[in-house]
Amino acid sequence: MSVHIDITGLRRERIIAVTSPLAELGMALHTLSEPGHHPGLQAWATGVTAGLDLHLADRMCEADFLWRTTFSDLFLPYAGIPGRSALPGATLAEDLDLLDKLSDEQFVDAALEFTCVPSYGAPGPAALTDADTGRRALELAAARGPRQLLFSERLLTDPPSTRAWLRQFLEDCDEAFFADTWSRLSHQLAADVRHKTDLLRHKGLAEAMTSVSSSVRLDEAAGRIVVDKLGEGRTATVDGGLLLVPTSLGRPHLMVLHRYGWQPTLHYPVSSPELVPPPSVEQLTLRMAALSHPVRMRMCRSLARSAFTTGELARTHGMSAPEVSRHLSALKKAGLLLTRRRGRYVLHQLDVAAVARLGSDFLEGILR
């Protein structure tokens, strides 16, 4: 499973790494709503939450479906500007001005992304102008609670006032906590943008994509960028470009904006180099399957304590050597086995560190 970005005919100068205050504010709101997704930021989230005005905290709940579930495309509005060449603003105010430039239909469809998504990757009826689509959106919103239903009703009946409410809310968040946060984070993001730009200029797209994430690769033969995610999606740069937008608050989320008609955008987390890159979805599946077998689970109990030869495992578990070899092969293919030679014997041992990471790897894989 993966998201594919067709880059056929894309010129290098149309691939742009750039910071976005609004995108980072969106991720800040997500982190405050779902601190469990970001264990490394819980101290920051706790500090901000403790200092929030109660009225602002209550307003934060009114439209939290725009950022709690994942991350609304409204926080990347420049991608929806006609011409597919707009860039984020240098300030939050400039980004919010770009948000104001989206049509009401674009704004409503992006805001209802998590309750009405059948046409996300393809042209389809707009919830604001198609009665059936709008009615379906309200039905789905009702199933998610009265707050989401109320906001969705306001959105469909009076888009201008709802847009004004959202802009004012985001400006109030900036005054309350985000301006300070952005002043501390923007330098790191700007440094990453310079690094990506330098890689694109001197090393090429393949190396730049690897630098974005080990889950992103360039398939030159097919003319596409492939993002390893637990989901499917397709988009194309066509006559537009590709935006690379870094986030300091976003790990482990690697977002790919692939909304139909919008400029493809990679919203990726900036972090220090990892000693061990996260496994691909395929590797993660192999590891979960390898450990789920009851015989291999019993073998892992032995292998976690010491190194064994195939013959020793066969005697310990009352199995034939070929049977043991098949189970060891499955563990090795999944990257969970350490093997070393001692004279004419081959010793196998469980990679305890890899198994210990499996919980966090699984969580990162499904949140990516």
Rank of each mutant, 00 (worst) to 15 (best):
L166G: 07
V216Y: 01
M319I: 00
R11H: 11
E62V: 13
C173P: 04
R296S: 11
L10Q: 01
H317Y: 13
P82N: 08
E105Q: 15
S292L: 11
Y260N: 12
L358F: 02
L166Y: 08
C173Y: 02
D180M: 02
L170W: 14
S280M: 01
D228F: 03
A236R: 14
L76F: 03
L10T: 07
L257P: 00
T285C: 12
R84A: 14
L102G: 00
D192K: 06
A356C: 04
L10V: 01
A164V: 10
I16G: 05
A290E: 08
R167S: 10
A190P: 02
A28G: 04
S271V: 07
A17W: 07
V245E: 05
K196H: 12
A63M: 11
T197P: 00
E323A: 15
R357I: 05
L257D: 03
G124F: 08
D6Y: 04
L328E: 09
G51W: 00
P269R: 10
T285I: 13
A127E: 02
P159C: 10
T157F: 03
R135F: 06
H327D: 10
P264V: 01
E175Y: 05
R298M: 06
P123C: 00
C173M: 09
M1Q: 08
R344I: 05
L155D: 06
K333H: 14
Q263P: 09
V18E: 11
R144F: 05
T339V: 15
Y260L: 05
L92N: 02
T157Y: 08
A79W: 03
A356G: 07
K101L: 13
R154W: 09
L29F: 07
V216R: 04
S292I: 01
L185M: 12
Q283P: 01
R136S: 09
A43P: 01
T309L: 01
S211Q: 05
K332Q: 15
H253M: 12
L155P: 03
R201N: 11
L150K: 12
A43K: 09
P322V: 08
V117H: 13
R167N: 03
L10R: 01
V108K: 04
L205V: 11
H293K: 12
A23N: 11
G233P: 04
F151A: 12
E13R: 13
E207H: 11
R11K: 14
E105F: 05
A353C: 03
A45H: 02
H187E: 13
S103Y: 04
S161M: 13
G80P: 03
L266G: 02
G47Q: 14
P159W: 08
D100L: 12
G231T: 13
L98P: 09
T210D: 10
D6E: 14
G80W: 09
T91L: 01
D174W: 12
M297Y: 10
A290V: 08
P246I: 10
L32N: 00
V346F: 08
H348T: 00
Q283K: 14
L41T: 05
L128P: 04
R201Q: 14
A111Y: 03
D97E: 14
Y345A: 15
T235W: 02
